[in-house]
Amino acid sequence: MTEPEGVPILSLTHVSKTFFSGRRSRIDAVRDVTFHLYPHEIVCLVGESGSGKSTTAHLIMAMETSTSGTIRYQGQDVARLRGRSAHRQYRRAVQMIFQDPYASLNPVHTAGYTIGRPMEIHHSIASASQRNKAVLRLLRQVDLTPPAEFYYKLPYQLSGGQRQRVAIARALAVQPALIIADEPVSMLDVSLRAGILQLILQARDEAGVTFLYITHDLASARYIGDRILVMYRGIICEEGMADAVINGPQHPYTKALIEAVPNPEHLEDGGTVDDTVIPSHPSAPASPGCPYYALCPVSVAECQQNLPDWTELSGKHRVRCFHVADARHGVKT
């Protein structure tokens, strides 16, 4: 995949989401997030649990409204969709695949109904017999064969991988331009993951769907992603082409994240698994600065005070870190 170009299909500009619970407790789930998705690319949003990646998905799906900032789909502000038809158009254009295929399919509906219903809602295919054919074709495409048999299967008769294939077929049913996939393989057996990832790649290559692939797993992000956005406690701290981020991480958090992945090659060399695990819930108080400052080995006083701005590196690679910014300007830290 070449570098992104052209007009973005989806743009998030300075998007923040704050949840309040009670008077004192305030959680900045998403802080000043800006990114763009270009047509036909797969962008991976990588982060640990609690990093705000699912909240970002919910904001894009208009399940939540942002506290500040704008989300634009093809130039149109998602928060300002007015009227039934505008909502319907957006629902048709942007679909979502849920994490848990055991919860995202209604236990009383057959696979055929689940996949055919979106077509019915959006009248994308007029006649019932044409719709049935389209459903059978989708079942075949997601490799549930023979499709005529799977058409009548209820969720409890399907395995987790098969269920997720039904969920993907449902998302593809109305030929969306963009699909938000919220950890679609994390609930599946490792042996089934490659098949689902393959399916996503195929949907991109052949149906031209753009994907925002949300995951906590760097390995699958590297496998599937054209670009990677690394998210930590509400902010995107590094973004760039997948290879550039994985091979040359710049942000201290990204570095720690990549080192935390057990590497079998090192084991063979007699090394051990690096156990410098990143504490998942550091007790650092909410500060206006970089959320990683308390754990960061190279943090400076400024890190706690201010949120660093983007430092552009080569290509589309950019980082939000004072340390990197200073290094590039030749200042010793």
């Binding site: 799906m61 995202s104 399919l105 209604n106 219903r117 809602i121 969920a167 449902r170």
Partner: peptide, 21 residues
């Protein structure tokens, strides 16, 4: 439940969700 959310995200109306999901 997720399947109710999923139905809403495919554009199902409120009455449709009550009736069908």
């Amino acid at each position: 439940r997720d399947f109710v959310q999923a139905a809403r995200l495919t554009g199902e109306s409120t009455w449709g969700i009550v009736q069908r999901e």
